[in-house]
């Protein structure tokens, strides 16, 4: 009797270990497929003609080179990429510079008003962009900045989310490093530049990836303020291709792939720092 009950108990415990794991893998596989499917579909569609895409063809075709040629014929690719890169890189650098300074300041300097001001900054996260669009547009109009890239940069420079991110990360920055730097003769800005920035480089890398993606993919605000073709970014151009009277979806897919490549590149290059930054910079 004893032997039988033991032999039954073993497979039961193995099943209880294997089944949850199998369920997890199935769930993860479904999630991975749902995440990757649009990208695969985009890749497949870029090789098909617009008619095949509309028909729902889900296999690779032979129209890739034709789609690429049409895309380059319809779009001034170097100019569009230059516009996007200029806006995304400048906005990212400015956002990180301003927001990291603010996050550092909020964490390092004690003041009676500090938490109140910080709460106000965080409150801005609750305001939807739709509520800001018209006032922002009027401000830019009065400043004569409509149809310039500065109009895209300015509203993104101080990001409440990135300030929050840097303040949280700064909590892990050892205050004794700041004290040691003061004893070594560094001024506050030097402590920030020579100690804080290098020590927090993973945090900066993670912030760079996040902010670069946000800015590269920025669509609504550039759509409002950029009106001439000379200033348009890749997202606007791809969108305009898709909303044409007779859109060529093969060409649209080529544009979408090209628009995706820089963000993928940034992510893969900075993948390790990104993960480290999300986990916490200071080791």
């Amino acid at each position: 009797m004893t032997a039988i009950s033991t032999s039954r108990a073993v497979p039961a415990s193995r099943a209880s270990r294997v089944l949850p794991r199998a369920a997890t893998y199935v769930a993860l596989s479904v999630a991975a497929f749902v995440s990757v499917f649009p990208f695969i579909w985009m890749m497949i569609s870029s090789t098909n003609t617009s008619i095949d895409i509309i028909k729902g063809k889900a296999t690779f075709g032979r129209a890739f080179s034709n789609n690429v040629a049409n895309f380059f014929a319809q779009v001034d690719v170097p100019l569009v990429f230059w516009n996007s890169a200029k806006v995304a890189i400048l906005a990212t650098l400015l956002t990180i510079a301003v927001s990291s300074l603010a996050g550092y300041g909020f964490e390092m300097f004690r003041s009676k008003m500090r938490d109140r001001i910080y709460s106000l900054v965080l409150l801005t996260l609750m305001v939807p962009f739709a509520a800001l669009m018209i006032p922002l547009f009027m401000m830019m109009g009065k400043a004569g900045l409509i149809n310039t890239h500065i109009a895209i940069l300015l509203p993104t420079v101080a990001s409440a989310f990135i300030i929050f991110y840097f303040r949280q990360a700064t909590k892990a920055f050892p205050t004794e490093l700041r004290d040691a730097a003061k004893v070594d003769g560094l001024k506050e800005w030097q402590i920030f530049l020579y100690i804080y920035v290098p020590v927090m480089r993973s945090t900066y890398a993670a912030a760079f990836v996040i902010v670069f993606m946000m800015n590269w993919n920025n669509y609504l605000w550039p759509l409002i303020v950029l009106q001439s073709n000379d200033t348009k970014t890749i997202t606007l151009v791809v969108s305009s291709l898709a909303s044409a009277y007779y859109p060529d979806f093969g060409v649209v897919m080529i544009g979408t792939i090209l628009a995706t490549l820089p963000t993928l590149l940034v992510f893969f290059v900075m993948q390790r720092q990104f993960v480290a930054g999300m986990l916490g910079s200071v080791k």
Partner: peptide, 12 residues
């Protein structure tokens, strides 16, 4: 010159 409890060496 000061020596700190956590050493406060610059990690980079």
């Amino acid at each position: 010159a000061m020596v700190f409890q956590s050493y406060a060496l610059y990690p980079h």
